[in-house]
């Protein structure tokens, strides 16, 4: 099983990549880790005439702390994020998510920007980055641009990126002291895409109540979705079992899943409610300073 024939380029510079994208337009695709694009090409679901490999752009790889943000280079591989002490200590929600992406082999090659650009509705990293309020830096022939996650995500397998626009960096704000986050994924078998997933980042106020909260849902819509009604119910409130049940019902109602091989609409709505309650519990414990290992379903 081979991809259709294509011309292969492996430029040394980002400028070279953009020049090729400008020249070949829709007929060209960029290759990052290749863990989604190569299977698509073998199945002939994608048949680019020109393949532009980013493998030599090592400058676009790496994780660093900059003021109150974590900067993650576009081509940073999932395994590097998984192993990063900075991510483990400052962004536990992202760490939860990256450790459940596919399997070891895919995490060793797959990249953060590649995953975002591929935009699988059941991907783990888009909901995680949506919950964390990440911004996406890009470059194209018309210059640099910064997108919010909401601006990047358009539809299933489609983003707002232009034909010659390349993601260069993902900036993730470091949550303040007293904030806790968790990402929980429910999967049918190890390494599968999510049936449903939830990312929750919340900050406790001085009274120990839930202050700001962001809830992002994965695999229950064409893109990752915010659970805005559930957020409104929980924010600036003391968390009680009854309130959590109410928020879970709200999230179940406001998600927009489709029925597929992984489950029915009804089942996925139910899962969202369950995952929300579990994720809030973990996030609260982490906000209180406890080290909690997430257990994914």
């Amino acid at each position: 099983m081979y991809p259709q024939k294509f011309d292969y380029f492996c430029p040394d510079t980002l400028e070279g990549v953009i020049e090729l994208l400008t020249r070949y337009g829709e007929d060209a695709r960029v290759l990052a880790g290749g863990q989604s694009l190569i299977p698509l090409m073998k199945l002939r679901l994608a048949s680019p005439k020109y393949l532009i490999d980013l493998d030599k752009l090592q400058d676009l790889s790496g994780i660093s702390e900059q003021r109150n943000e974590v900067s993650i280079g576009a081509l940073t591989r999932h395994a590097e994020i998984e192993e990063s002490e900075l991510v483990q200590s400052k962004l536990p929600l992202l760490h939860d998510a990256v450790t459940v992406v596919a399997d070891v082999q895919v995490r060793n090659l797959g990249t953060l920007a590649g995953s975002l650009a591929h935009a699988d509705p059941a991907g783990d990293l888009a909901p995680a980055l949506l919950a964390l309020g990440a911004r996406i830096n890009t470059v194209s022939s018309s210059g640099k641009a910064t997108l919010g996650m909401g601006e990047l995500m358009v539809d299933a397998w489609s983003t707002s990126l232009g034909g010659d626009q390349v993601i260069t960096e993902i900036l993730v704000p470091i949550p303040p002291q007293g904030s806790g986050g968790a990402y929980l994924k429910f999967e049918r078998r190890a390494g599968d895409f999510a049936v449903a997933s939830i990312g929750v980042q919340l900050t406790l106020d001085q009274k120990g109540n839930c202050g700001d909260i962001v809830i992002a849902m994965g695999a229950v819509g064409v893109t990752a979705l915010r659970a805005e009604k559930a957020e409104a119910l929980l924010s600036n409130q003391p968390i009680s079992d009854d309130l959590l049940k109410e928020a879970a019902s709200a999230a179940s109602a406001e998600c927009d899943p489709f029925s597929d091989i992984r489950g029915s609409v009804e089942y996925k709505r139910h899962l969202i409610g369950v995952l929300l309650r579990r994720a809030v519990e973990v996030a609260l414990r982490r906000a209180a300073g406890e080290k909690v290992k997430t257990v994914h379903g």
Binding site: Y8, K42, D55, Q105, N108
Partner: peptide
């Protein structure tokens, strides 16, 4: 499987485990 599902073709590339059916040889 040839589509990256089974792991039978795993090899080490630069010391890291990868599925060789998901890597172009030219790379």
């Amino acid at each position: 499987c040839v589509v990256g599902e089974c792991g039978a073709c795993s090899v080490l590339l630069e010391g890291r485990l990868v599925k060789s059916c998901l890597v172009l040889a030219v790379r």
